[in-house]
Design a protein around this nucleic acid. Structure first.
Length: 117
DNA sequence: CCTTTGACCAACA
DNA sequence: TTGTTGGCCAAAG
């Protein structure tokens, strides 16, 4: 099982205009307790270049990774550019949170199985 | 082998 | 509703 390879795939599945949480991604990768490693991976670009890191926030909707971008408000701009409103450095997860459907979860699992990871 | 360090999180006061 | 606390776990030193 390769956590980081899975993370790359799961991350690419985050829809435009939506955000996912670190814990949620860890869960999709089959490692519910590895939320910290998700942040770690994003910080080092270990999860592939295609992963939209700006769509990842913490469980309270806070843009905790913002300082790691080229400029501190880059993440905010990118999100607003997708129609996601950012208030006080936070997003409303009820509105913009990625509620992954069973189909999406299954598609991911299938993807993992197919790649043997 | 330790020990320290995080883009975390749920529970609790 | 905001702080704090203890738990988490892979990397790096």
């Amino acid at each position: 099982m390769d956590f980081y390879r899975r993370l790359a795939l799961a991350g690419e599945a985050i829809p435009f205009g939506k955000v996912a949480t670190y814990g949620q991604l860890a869960l999709l990768c089959g490692r519910p307790r590895n939320s910290r490693q998700v942040g770690y991976a994003l910080n080092r670009g270990m999860a592939g270049e295609k992963l939209p890191a700006h769509r990842v926030v913490n469980s309270q909707g806070l843009l905790t990774g913002a300082p790691a971008f080229d400029t501190p408000d880059m993440q905010k701009w990118l999100l607003e550019g997708e129609g996601v409103e950012v208030k006080d450095g936070k997003v409303d997860l009820k509105k913009y949170g990625w509620h992954n459907t069973m189909e999406e979860a299954m598609a991911l699992k299938e993807c993992f199985d197919r790649l043997g990871i």
